[in-house]
Design a protein around this nucleic acid. Sequence first.
DNA 1: ACGCCTTTGTGAAGGCATTCACAAAATCGC
DNA 2: GCGATTTTGTGAATGCCTTCACAAAGGCGT
Lengths: 258, 258
Amino acid sequence: MIAQRGQLNAVGATVDQRSVPATDQRSVPEATVARLATYLRALIGLGEHGVATVSSESLATAAGVNSAKLRKDLSYLGSYGVRGVGYDVSVLTEQINKTLGLHQNRAVALIGLGHLGQALAGYAGFASRGFRIAALIDAHPALVGTRLHGLTVQHVDELADIVRRESIAIAVVAVPAAAAQDVCDRLVSAGVTSILNFAPTVLNVPSHVDVRKVDLAAELQILSFHDNRKSGRPECAGALGAEQSLAVPSTGKVAVVR
Amino acid sequence: MIAQRGQLNAVGATVDQRSVPATDQRSVPEATVARLATYLRALIGLGEHGVATVSSESLATAAGVNSAKLRKDLSYLGSYGVRGVGYDVSVLTEQINKTLGLHQNRAVALIGLGHLGQALAGYAGFASRGFRIAALIDAHPALVGTRLHGLTVQHVDELADIVRRESIAIAVVAVPAAAAQDVCDRLVSAGVTSILNFAPTVLNVPSHVDVRKVDLAAELQILSFHDNRKSGRPECAGALGAEQSLAVPSTGKVAVVR
DNA sequence: ACGCCTTTGTGAAGGCATTCACAAAATCGC
DNA sequence: GCGATTTTGTGAATGCCTTCACAAAGGCGT
């Protein structure tokens, strides 16, 4: 399903001169997609340093993965490397851009302008990596109408209009957990098909809508788990100890890795 | 789906020394750990609503996963359910807390107080979910010395002292990409063993240090990929116009007209 | 006490993802 | 032109995660 798209794509009619399934998004594994963004970042960095060609080995190092994985990942996009030489930085950059659908800046709506929302509104990384924040939305009367990073905050009741007017497909939700599902429902019925959720709650959406969540505290909790494990024995010091007291510290063993 | 993944740093298996079956953290799969935080959130929510017992089915729904997965995940922690009844909310909450090492509040250092850093400094979700921001650190002279959310911003040169004084094992890095590796190196040599990185760059760390990254633009790019794919095929009648697709069944190709 | 009903915990199967390892392709030096 | 050298692209193997499906375990009603 989902065949290749005939990209109009301004910059040069670089259209596929290949007859092969270039940019065959059908089968790009999820894990690979998640890494493409990292590769893209690394490639852009290389390009800015004037590097014209890069081997899978060094690109992999720059992206923090091993080269076999990188090559397999890239192979899903088509065959853009040259054996014995490596990858052309600009070609590969363009190819990943295309695969990720970043050929044109995508309009994004940001809902919720608390501390986090305001920070996101000013985050330069969005603009520099293919996204344009096209609307700022909040429900708080004191915020609506104020200007922020060049945009006027609009009321959440106008959400549907805004989404349609600006052809917004992607929204960032940075409202309190209690309000998130409601905002989400409004977004979905307005036609948004992709949501990045910062609220610590599960969003229920119809199957044609994609949700990615960023749960900041959860990230720390995951680190905490590993840290707990690394630091060895001293676990539940207080509260519910009982069974733990007979740890075996004699060897003082610590987590040994590789 | 599309759950985030950790980075390198697999954190290998620890040594044996076993004989304590309960809370055997040695073998909890990474994917499970990442979900425990979500279960915990759901459980706390249930607890606050006075729910005393919950079945795997309804807890799974609350957490947005299927019940088989939830049961298997919980089985790694031990056997805390009662057949025919379900799980005791408070027992399970406590158990997950323990597994994640959240029995006592963990001190966290936050480095970088730009827009994002300031938002994180004020993020209530950290405090309510087991973490205490114990230090705010930046390099900018204009920021050092100012008070923010009850803490005085300290200079990055004092980082090592602060980490030791406060027994900090976890740090949040919210500095510009160009400064991230340097800050990271300082953290590691000061003894920090877990890092949550918001800078869009790969951090190199020794194998005993854990890094998790949150790349905001990458999240959007991943959504963009799927969105790109979706809009190429008129699967579900998306009543959101803006784009019209012309499918060419014979070749399976799709052209997008804007 | 005794079935009945509900729900857990878990082997087994199936699906993805990662890693391995090597043949194929391309350049370079001579 | 040709062999040496480099590096890609990819089958095959391995391992991890998810899903299935069901026996075992416990409460409840009678």
